[in-house]
């Protein structure tokens, strides 16, 4: 899966999780920029990404997800 395709799939998951139809993903995007992205919805997001992309995260990796760019990097290392 190339990066644009991954971003497309992630955008669908993000929009559904946060109920934000016009949300656009950028590498710099963080939880502070999105309404309702808190420690509760974050875990739902993680679980939806795992289901949607058929991957499994490690707890250690969660701490490294400082923004969407870091998240994409971790996912890329798992699917490629």
């Amino acid at each position: 899966m190339d990066k644009p395709e991954l971003i497309d799939r992630l955008t669908t998951i993000f929009r559904a999780t946060f109920d934000a139809d016009s949300l656009v993903l950028t590498d710099e995007l963080t939880a502070n920029d999105v309404d309702n992205w808190d420690s509760l919805t974050h875990m739902i997001l993680i679980s939806e990404i795992e289901k949607g992309l058929d991957i499994k995260f490690k707890l250690k990796e969660l701490n490294k997800m400082k923004n969407v760019g870091a998240l994409i990097e971790i996912i890329t290392s798992k699917i490629n």
């Binding site: 509760l40 875990m43 679980s47 707890l59 969660l62």
Partner: peptide, 15 residues
């Protein structure tokens, strides 16, 4: 976070 992570497959109930 460690708890919610290990309960995440139960969705909102896990949280």
């Amino acid at each position: 976070t460690p708890l919610a992570f290990s309960f995440r497959r139960y969705g909102v109930s896990g949280i």
